[in-house]
């Protein structure tokens, strides 16, 4: 489980064509890093995968389910796709424990006791057990993002999407979040990560995708993309960021 197949995906915002023709196949347990300049469409691509943006045309299959034609099933499909946001988006009126255990209980997938037990296990995994009963505003950015990862994992998803998970963090907190993500990759999670962290992409990604102006311009293993980029636009971009 954890397979994503994107075919001929296009996305317009009004007259603006953000994604022009995206074809991408993500294998089970594969870690994909999507890089590109801001405005290149990489976040939009990620948001289309769990239908936070509706695709204008094309298909997106996750574990055999077509997200673009979900109709009444989108909530069910989304349970299988974890999402981590740049701005964390923790629920400020809930404790850390409630943030993580809330959705499985509300959706009647687990009892409160089961969900809290799972939540505590996940907090151990992100090394924040002592923060279970505080509210998000009392956590640092890095801690909040680790809780957000735990919250997404609580739904036991097959695929995890990360939308620039470290871009809103102070530099000294980036490492703790990336470490959690590295561990997750090691545990075999299928991951699609939009990131500006080239070091992370080089170290963890199985495949790096460079997006520019709504197209996948170049893709390949990190050693190829970073060590021997072929396309001039990739070279220009990497010269700017490295």
């Amino acid at each position: 489980m954890g397979k994503v197949i994107i075919k001929n995906l296009k996305k317009n915002f009004g007259d603006l064509e953000v994604l022009k023709d995206i074809n991408l196949e993500v294998k089970e347990q594969e870690v994909i890093c999507i890089i590109g300049a801001s405005g290149s469409g990489k976040s939009t691509l990620l948001r289309c995968i769990n239908a936070l943006e509706d695709a204008s045309s094309g298909t997106i299959e996750v574990d055999g389910n077509d997200i673009t034609r979900a109709d009444g099933n989108i909530n069910k499909y989304r349970q299988n796709i974890g999402m981590v946001f740049q701005q964390f988006n923790l629920f400020p009126h809930m404790t850390v424990l409630k943030n993580i255990s809330f959705a499985p209980v509300a959706l009647k997938l687990k009892t409160k006791e089961e969900a809290e037990e799972t939540a505590m296990k996940l907090l151990r995994r992100v090394d924040l057990t002592e923060k279970a009963n505080v509210h998000p505003e009392q956590l640092s950015g890095g801690q909040q993002q680790r809780v957000a990862i735990a919250r997404a994992l609580a739904m036991n998803p097959d695929v995890m999407l990360f939308d620039e998970p470290t871009s809103a963090l102070d530099p000294e907190m980036v490492g703790e979040v990336l470490n959690v993500m590295k561990q997750l990759a090691k545990d075999g999670m299928t991951m699609i990560v939009v990131t500006h962290e080239m070091g992370f992409a080089r170290e963890v990604a199985d495949r790096v995708i460079f997006i520019d102006e709504g197209f996948i311009v170049e893709e390949g293993p990190p050693s190829e993309i970073f060590g021997n980029p072929k396309n001039q636009r990739t070279i220009n971009f990497l010269n700017k960021v490295l």
Binding site: Y77, R78, M83, L107, A152
Partner: peptide, 13 residues
């Protein structure tokens, strides 16, 4: 913030 609704929906609510 819009992110609150998106976060909730992304969990399948």
């Amino acid at each position: 913030s819009r992110g609150q609704m998106e976060a909730a929906r992304s969990l399948g609510l």
